[in-house]
Amino acid sequence: MPNILATRIDNRLIHGQVGVTWVNHIGANLILVADDVVANDNIQQSLMDMAAPNTVDTRYFTIQETIDKIHFAADDQLIFLVVRTPQNVLKLVEGGVPIKKVNIGNMHFSEGKKQITSTVSIDEDDAKILRKLHELGVELEIRRVPDERSKDILEFI
Results as ranks from 00 to 15, higher is better:
residue 137 G to K: 13
residue 146 P to S: 12
residue 44 Q to P: 03
residue 28 A to E: 08
residue 9 I to L: 15
residue 97 V to N: 12
residue 38 V to A: 05
residue 45 Q to E: 07
residue 112 G to E: 11
residue 114 K to L: 12
residue 59 R to C: 06
residue 156 F to V: 11
residue 19 G to I: 15
residue 49 D to K: 09
residue 41 D to T: 04
residue 83 V to P: 04
residue 6 A to E: 13
residue 82 V to K: 04
residue 139 E to Q: 08
residue 2 P to G: 07
residue 92 L to R: 10
residue 98 P to E: 01
residue 5 L to Q: 03
residue 89 V to C: 13
residue 79 I to V: 01
residue 125 D to I: 14
residue 150 S to V: 00
residue 40 N to I: 06
residue 8 R to W: 15
residue 126 D to L: 14
residue 18 V to R: 11
residue 119 T to Y: 12
residue 83 V to N: 04
residue 25 H to Y: 14
residue 24 N to L: 15
residue 94 E to P: 10
residue 17 Q to K: 10
residue 112 G to N: 04
residue 31 I to S: 07
residue 135 E to R: 03
residue 87 Q to G: 10
residue 14 I to R: 06
residue 78 L to Q: 07
residue 138 V to T: 04
residue 99 I to T: 04
residue 154 L to P: 00
residue 156 F to E: 09
residue 147 D to I: 03
residue 39 A to T: 04
residue 34 A to F: 00
residue 136 L to T: 00
residue 5 L to T: 08
residue 48 M to Y: 04
residue 140 L to S: 00
residue 87 Q to E: 13
residue 54 N to F: 07
residue 33 V to I: 14
residue 130 L to Q: 03
residue 1 M to Q: 03
residue 124 E to C: 01
residue 21 T to P: 07
residue 100 K to Q: 03
residue 4 I to G: 03
residue 37 V to K: 00
residue 58 T to Q: 03
residue 12 R to H: 14
residue 65 E to L: 01
residue 9 I to R: 13
residue 108 H to C: 12
residue 145 V to H: 06
residue 132 K to T: 14
residue 24 N to P: 14
residue 37 V to E: 08
residue 74 A to T: 04
residue 95 G to E: 07
residue 95 G to V: 13
residue 38 V to L: 10
residue 105 G to W: 15
residue 79 I to M: 01
residue 72 F to H: 02
residue 127 A to V: 01
residue 18 V to W: 14
residue 134 H to P: 00
residue 94 E to F: 11
residue 131 R to E: 02
residue 52 A to S: 09
residue 142 I to Y: 14
residue 43 I to W: 08
residue 157 I to E: 02
residue 28 A to K: 06
residue 29 N to A: 12
residue 145 V to K: 13
residue 19 G to K: 15
residue 118 S to P: 02
residue 13 L to P: 10
residue 88 N to T: 10
residue 83 V to G: 10
residue 71 H to T: 01
residue 14 I to P: 15
